[in-house]
């Protein structure tokens, strides 16, 4: 009986590794047994099938994306269906509009975000977030100097809300969360993203 080698396409998930909690995302993918790698250069970006933009400082991350030439390549890939997940600062960078700010952004989702909408660090908080498509139990949302999605276009599907505003949203190949699932042991959002990647 000859051994048949099937050729699998193993998807490689990139995590933007400039500034922020990139390490936590890489750990989640390790735990899930997914291939993942840090992305800092255009050639890093070319080798991955999806990208996570982590939490951190959106201004700093945006500047580094621009300085190291990733801005246009990333926009082009997102426009052609490349799956991206943005958490917190990542959600800010993927918004088409950032309220009262002219910072560098990537864009990709038809939402308006307001930075530091809940206050300074002493106002950071945790709360249970009910996410219908993930079922029970609720997701523990860790909100750190979090942004708020103040409005969303008609093509945006709200996956979860908290206190009357969306905190998780999806539009085509772009998913954003205003909180940090990577800081908890609950990897359902990461697995959901992997299903999107296929």
């Amino acid at each position: 009986m000859p051994v048949i080698f099937l050729e699998f396409t193993v998807k490689q998930i990139g995590v933007l590794r400039y500034q922020g909690d990139f390490e936590r995302h890489l750990h989640v993918f390790d735990r899930l047994g997914t291939k993942s790698s840090p992305v800092r250069t255009v050639s890093d970006l070319e080798t991955v099938d999806a990208l996570v933009i982590p939490g951190g400082e959106s201004t700093t991350i945006g500047m580094l994306i621009e300085r190291f030439g990733l801005l246009e390549p990333l926009r082009r890939r997102i426009a052609s269906g490349f799956p991206v997940l943005g958490t917190c600062a990542g959600a800010i960078l993927l918004a088409n509009t950032i309220e009262s700010s002219d910072q560098v952004k990537v864009g990709g989702m038809d939402i308006v975000v307001r930075r530091n909408a809940y206050g300074t660090q002493v106002d950071s908080f945790e709360a249970d977030i009910h996410v219908p498509r993930l079922g029970d139990p609720p997701v523990r949302g860790v909100f750190i100097r979090a942004p708020r999605i103040v409005s969303a276009g008609p093509g945006v599907e709200v996956l979860a809300g908290f206190e009357d505003y969306p905190v998780a949203a999806l539009e085509a190949n772009v998913m954003v969360l205003t909180f940090h699932p990577e800081l908890t042991e609950d990897d359902r959002f990461h697995r959901h993203f992997l299903e999107m990647v296929g």
Partner: peptide
């Protein structure tokens, strides 16, 4: 009601901000 209750300034949010400041 409990779902929407905020728990402010937990150890996880404190260390979480430190995590966000990595690499910079």
């Amino acid at each position: 009601q409990l779902w929407s209750e905020r728990q402010p300034a937990t150890w996880r949010t404190k260390v979480g901000l430190a995590e966000m400041l990595k690499g910079g």
